[in-house]
Design a protein around this nucleic acid. Structure first.
Length: 602
DNA sequence: CGACCGACTTGCCATTAATGAA
DNA sequence: TTCATTAATGGCAAGTCGGTCG
């Protein structure tokens, strides 16, 4: 109930803030209704009948369709076996997808080429298919050049031309970018349908290069309120279906043809619907905080269970808790070979009785989500080590490490420990806990705002490292690093110079003390001090930059760190929240801003 | 159970916009 | 004011997890 009240007050505040002119009373009623719904959500044990409704009225304009294909001008041609060849528009469009990618590395991959060519052939006319037999005889270079030039032209547009484009975009946003949900105008996350193109999966994806088809209105299901105006399909077309399902949050959906999975048009994170869900997520993580000691005790007991499945489960949860691994659902072989905790294979770990001066070391090396490599050497409890040895006994490298458990079973166990608990809650919980601990540790009074921000970034970075959030090193990294180092060098020289002058001033003052010499001395002292501070700041920057080379902070900031921690920290240490959250982030975390008081601790 | 599906969150990257140095 | 760097945004792929069905 206490948390529920917190929730209500938060949203009342937001509604007051957002709709200063609008009727406060009706807003309160509105948000109170939302909060009351959440109250029943909190009581998981009471069943789930009442919490399935997501809205009571919903109206929108439907998705925005990408522009139709514009055929190439007559002087731009595809060549087959050295001969120019005019293609049908549909076939030509597919060619342009490939031609645009020509200087990308993946067009040189065999899988990409094969997938592309076989999907392309499917779409060719009979005549074209008869003529075009192998990809290696296809010459897209003229088309490629054409698009390079076009993009160059776009870059060189005048200010006025760019302005026109900008206005066009904002008109589009105004028309399609918002919906009316329970009487509130809310921003839509992705109102534009995905244009056709070639699929590029992450990592070694077996489907890379396949054709992602153009979405027709006849593929799209519309979801809106029973009494709302039904969005008009493009002229001469009709929707696949129009439904009025208020147990889901999406406005439109279609099946993408690569995996045959549904895709959705949904609300922006700034919306109440998403914000409420986000807030709930952190409340669940905070409930785990209360329970985690007993859960840890439990899984440690499981390490010595007579049952293999219990031992495996105990070790798996230990990994999820200690290392913030993902659950690791099973995957089909139609996607890249990546794993999480439950899908780890024997080949992904190496056991070391001793390593780097530590006992019972486990070396992890596997590809996780998005084919990002997870490499880590961690000391584990002796009993865990023993168990791992047991798990890998008589197994081949490609066998599952945890062969007696699945994510479903694991989550079922967790849910029995605490309602709403699943594997991913541990990631949220550990991430937010880490942020809170690090902030408490790294922030001290007397720090400048810059230093505090650096501390925040450090804390943020600790979380990103825990969650293995990586990024490709920025292309300009070396250069910008060099620039920074040059600056530092220059500053050092300036300090040398200033010190020399200081020494001289000292000497002058000693030899012939006077008011003037004293003043000069003080001035020189100040100069040295100021320069040293500047140097320190630059070196701080250098460290920050270096440490951020391959670490991505955004994902954790957006998805794992309870905004209340950040907001409270900002207030407590007089750091303007805008220094930590940009506009978008402030919109997304509106539920936490202004409502969280400075004493909040996760 | 386990396969499958639907809905929703999480994740990295390319593009675009904003900012600051020259 | 222009150009180069950096930050914000949008795009969409790839996870998690609950539900259903045989």
């Amino acid at each position: 109930m206490k948390t529920c009240l917190r929730f209500i007050s938060r949203f009342i505040y937001i509604s007051a803030e957002r709709n200063k002119v609008a009727s406060f009373v009706s807003s309160v009623r509105y948000y109170y209704a939302a909060a009351a719904k959440t109250l029943s959500d909190c009581r998981w044990e009471e069943g789930k009948s009442s919490d399935t409704q997501k809205w009571s009225s919903l109206e929108h304009k439907g998705p925005y369709f990408p522009p139709e294909y514009e055929p190439l001008p007559d002087n731009i041609c595809f060549y087959y076996d050295g001969q120019p060849m005019k293609l049908s528009p549909a076939t030509e469009e597919i060619v342009t997808f490939y031609a645009k990618m020509l200087d990308h590395e993946y067009t040189s991959k065999e899988v990409f080429q094969n997938n592309f060519f076989s999907d392309w052939k499917e779409e060719m006319t009979k005549e074209e298919r008869k003529l075009i037999k192998t990809l290696s005889k296809c010459d897209f270079s003229q088309i490629h050049k054409y698009f390079v030039e076009k993009s160059e032209e776009r870059k060189n547009m005048t200010k006025e031309e760019k302005q026109v484009l900008k206005e066009e975009a904002s008109r589009l946003m105004e028309e399609y970018g918002f919906c009316l949900l329970d009487g509130h105008r809310e921003k839509i996350g992705n109102f534009k349908l995905e244009p056709p193109g070639l699929f590029r999966g992450r990592g070694e994806h077996p489907k890379m290069g396949k054709l992602k088809k153009r979405i027709q209105p006849e593929d799209v299901t519309i979801n809106c309120g029973q009494d709302s105006k039904i969005p008009a399909p493009p002229a001469g077309h009709r929707w696949k279906r129009v439904q009025h399902d208020n147990t889901v949050t999406w406005l439109a959906s279609w099946l993408e043809n690569i995996h045959g999975r549904p895709k959705y048009i949904m609300l922006n994170p700034s919306s109440k619907l998403k914000g409420e869900k986000d807030w709930q997520k952190y409340e669940t993580a905070r409930r785990l905080k209360m329970k985690v000691d007993s859960i840890r005790k439990q899984y440690r007991r499981d390490w010595t269970s007579r049952e293999m499945k219990s031992r495996q489960r105990g070790v798996a949860i230990y990994f999820i808790d200690k290392l913030a691994l993902r659950a690791g659902n099973e995957k089909d072989d139609e996607s890249a070979d990546t794993v999480g905790c439950c899908s780890l294979r024997v080949e992904h770990i190496t056991l070391h009785r001793r390593l780097d001066g530590q006992e019972h070391m486990v070396e992890f090396d596997f590809l996780g989500k998005d084919s990002i490599r997870y490499y880590n050497k961690v000391p584990v409890e002796k009993q865990v080590f023993k168990n791992l040895k047991l798990f890998i006994k008589h197994k081949d490298p490609e066998d599952d490490l945890f062969d007696r458990i699945t994510t479903v079973k694991l989550n079922k166990t967790l849910n029995e420990c605490m309602p709403g608990l699943t594997a991913k809650v541990f990631r949220t919980f550990n991430a937010s806990t880490t942020l809170q601990d690090q902030l408490n540790k790294l922030t001290t009074e007397g720090m400048t705002v810059e230093e505090k921000i650096l501390s925040y970034n450090r804390a943020n970075r600790a979380v990103a490292i825990l969650c293995n959030h990586q990024r490709a090193a920025p292309k300009t990294f070396e250069k910008s690093m060099q620039l920074l180092q040059e600056k530092i060098q220059k500053k050092k020289e300036q300090i040398e110079e200033a010190k020399k002058e200081l020494k001289e001033a000292k000497k002058a003052h000693k030899d012939a003390p006077s008011d003037k010499s004293k003043k000069l001395l003080e001035k020189k002292e100040k100069a040295v001090q100021r320069l040293s501070e500047q140097l320190k700041k630059l070196q701080l920057q250098e460290t920050d930059h270096e440490e951020n080379k391959v670490i991505a902070l955004g994902t954790s900031k957006l998805n794992y760190l309870d905004a209340c921690i950040t907001v409270a920290w900002c207030k407590k240490h007089q750091v303007p929240v805008e220094k930590i959250y940009n506009k978008t982030q402030r919109d997304k975390f509106a539920w936490a801003i202004d409502m969280t008081d400075e004493n909040f601790q996760f």
